[in-house]
Write a protein that binds this DNA or RNA. Structure first.
Lengths: 201, 201
DNA sequence: ACATCAACCAAGCAAGCGCTAGTGTAAACC
DNA sequence: GGTTTACACTAGCGCTTGCTTGGTTGATGT
């Protein structure tokens, strides 16, 4: 009988699956490809996961949990000002995208391949994350740091950030902190840049 | 022998394919499903398209050509000021996403399913479109309307805009023009709103 | 020494896949 | 009036898919 627990082996397999899902897409990744990447035979795969869908759900859950934890930690560690909190969220978001890239690309691209049950469960996680953003943006609005409609601004910001997975090159000169700073600078009302740091990257 | 021309029938079939690709994803959409939606049998499909890949390429080409044409037209018809041109581009982009939604969702999600030849051809089209954006953003930067790095700003803006396909509800109260206005307001340095128009939607 | 159990393998089934081959037919063209 | 052309059909081939079944292995606890 196959198991559904959280064994370390299963976590390792999930990591490998994420990589393959990014390379080939979920539908084009066969259980045989997954098994080969993991160094086992296709049949053995179903000892760790009930079916193929469950692998996808595991990949996305991993990434989302990490993102949520990292964002919460960043908010706790930073200062109280709206500006600092906005920066902290943007930095955390981009750092997660960088370190956990595979899982997040899968979450963005293959979300609709999830079955109803998994989608329902995971959308709660995602909502919790997005609420963090809306909260920070609310604070920035009240502080007069940014302006506009609460809902629209948060969507625009998350769109800009999530889109980075399509063009950002981790090997390039730009660091996640630079992107975060540039984004916040773009949307804040005052155009000032902190002294000693250039806006152009 | 099957044909590769641009018959009106083929265009209609392409439109139907786009809808199915959005609903099910490219890989999960079988030629039998496509044929049924078109009211023919699966074999007849290959009279209009060489293979399944070609249908995908046709869908994406349609959408991209329309977007490019609409953006060019919008830039010709609007005024010369950087502000007007920025608004015109944002409006055109969102209107295309709305009217040609299916094709654009497919282009965003299924791009990597294209074979090398189609991807090469279509990426030139897409580059032409993105160059329009970078040009308009350059003008806005020179005019002092926005600030920041040319490359990063254009990526952030396109990310925010493209992300709209994930949450925008055409039946809702917000119109594409409202979104365009709000986005431009968010990224321009001065927080002023044109008289008689509210920022809150 | 014996039982347990997670982890794996070999073999293969039933279903579905993209696509082809050969044919029919009604309208369009010379 | 005969030929061509566009579009559709039936039938099915060869292959791949996710997943199942029944059995083996080696480590662990008693």
């Amino acid at each position: 009988m196959n198991v559904v627990n959280e064994s370390p082996r299963r976590k390792e397999l999930t990591r490998l699956a994420a990589q393959l899902f990014v390379q080939e897409g979920f539908d084009r990744t066969t259980v045989r490809m997954l098994a080969q990447e993991m160094g086992i035979k296709s049949g053995s795969l179903f000892h760790h996961f009930r079916d193929k869908q469950e692998i996808l759900a595991a990949v996305i859950e991993e990434g989302t949990q990490n993102a949520l934890a990292l964002a919460r930690q960043a908010l706790e560690e930073c200062g109280d000002s709206a500006d600092e909190r906005l920066h902290a969220m943007a930095r955390a978001h981009l750092q997660t995208l960088l370190t956990d890239r595979n899982a997040h690309v899968v979450a963005l691209y293959e979300w609709r391949r999830l079955d109803a049950a998994s989608r329902d469960h995971l959308s709660h996680l995602r909502d919790a994350y997005e609420e963090l953003w809306e909260q920070v943006i609310d604070e920035a609005l009240e502080a007069g740091l940014i302006h506009g409609d609460r809902f629209l601004v948060s969507r625009f910001v998350m769109g800009a950030l999530n889109w980075t997975v399509r063009w950002y090159d981790p090997e390039g000169a730009r660091k996640p902190e630079d992107l975060a700073h540039e984004l916040v600078a773009m949307i804040t009302t005052s155009a000032h840049t902190p002294p000693g740091q250039s806006t152009k990257v």
